[in-house]
């Protein structure tokens, strides 16, 4: 009797999440795989959902990857974009969270708000402000500052000159800022939740800020750091939105400003709304993402971190 009550309780805790998993992930994933074998386009489910297209969508995707002259640039860009942005996201978020810990709450709120702005801004507006910031003429904010300071003498097209590094720097910078706030919020909330006794104890022992970080804070929030890293990795692999407008407004060079996710998005979701192809490339992307995510968890020690709960009575 007690057992059934306990299991009922367990279900009560899990049912909402399981429902969401099934309805909004499991079913759509099955449908996506299904759609990847249909010629679905323009949202016309009535017409195309029952037509079987075989491997055609996958074939088209690989054909494009194989034959498109800019695709090498796209892969190179992804190989640079994802790890560098990830490093900026995680380290930046961690650094902000730790410094936050040591400054007063007022400045804390101020800094946090500033760093949240990129995440809060509608994507088009966010792209617009950086468009003006990096604009390659005298109207560009960065150019005008550097010219005033006498560092450069003519306007520089940041995203178009010094290829590929110029384009990479711009997209990494713009995307990096969005991700930092994620790490910052998660990690500083985690730091705040560390039982204060641990910190008092360390302070009493005369630990400096740096020692406190290394010995107490970082080890205590390892779980969160690992989580942020994996989560951001997957986010970056699939993110295109913050780059899309910068490329289409020609602020950055197209070949070296296009990460893989954006390439796939453009293939599938602009112009012809080829949702069959979108689904195929999505399935492909998901597989790669899942493998990378799993590897990251392995490397960061997922098993060690998932301790058995003591909550069983």
């Amino acid at each position: 009797m007690k057992d059934s009550k306990r299991s009922l309780e367990l279900w009560a805790f899990l049912v909402p999440a399981l429902l969401i998993l099934v309805v909004f992930y499991f079913l759509p994933t099955i449908l996506t795989i299904f759609i990847s074998f249909t010629p679905l386009r323009n949202w016309n489910i009535d017409r195309y959902a029952r037509i079987f297209a075989g491997w055609r969508n996958y074939y088209r995707l690989f054909y494009a990857i194989q034959n498109d002259p800019s695709v090498r640039a796209v892969f190179l860009t992804t190989a640079v974009f994802v790890p560098v942005t990830l490093a900026i996201n995680v380290l930046g978020g961690l650094a902000l969270a730790l410094i936050n810990f040591f400054v007063g709450k007022r400045s804390n709120a101020l800094i946090n708000t500033i760093w949240l702005l990129p995440r809060m801004t509608p994507i088009a507006v966010y792209s617009l402000v950086w468009y003006y910031f990096f604009h390659g003429s005298e109207i560009g904010t960065l150019n005008s500052i550097l010219i005033k300071l006498g560092i450069i003498h003519r306007a520089v097209s940041w995203g178009q000159e010094f290829l590929p590094y110029g384009a990479w720097s711009v997209i990494i910078f713009v995307n990096g800022l969005v991700g930092v706030s994620f790490g910052m919020i998660v990690l500083s909330s985690a730091v705040k939740s560390i039982p204060t006794e641990h910190i008092i104890a360390a302070r009493v022992d005369g630990a400096t800020d740096w020692q406190l970080c290394r010995r107490i804070l970082i080890p205590q929030i390892r779980w969160h750091i690992m989580y942020v890293a994996t989560w951001q990795l997957l986010s970056l692999l699939t993110s295109y939105a913050h780059t899309y407008l910068l490329v289409s407004w020609r602020l950055v060079d197209k070949s070296y400003g296009t990460p893989w996710a954006l390439y796939v998005y453009e293939l599938a979701f602009t112009g012809v709304f080829d949702q069959g192809l979108a689904a195929a490339s999505g399935v492909f992307l998901v597989i790669v993402g899942a493998i990378l995510g799993w590897l990251t968890l392995k490397i960061l020690g997922f098993n060690k971190l998932v301790t058995e709960p003591r909550g069983d009575l």
């Binding site: 992930y25 759509p28 994933t29 099955i30 679905l40 979701f269 979108a278 999505g282 992307l285 998901v286």
Partner: peptide, 14 residues
């Protein structure tokens, strides 16, 4: 964690 590899832009069709 791994379902985060399913981007919203792909899931949306389903």
């Amino acid at each position: 964690l791994l379902i985060h590899a399913l981007p919203g832009s792909v899931l949306i069709v389903g």
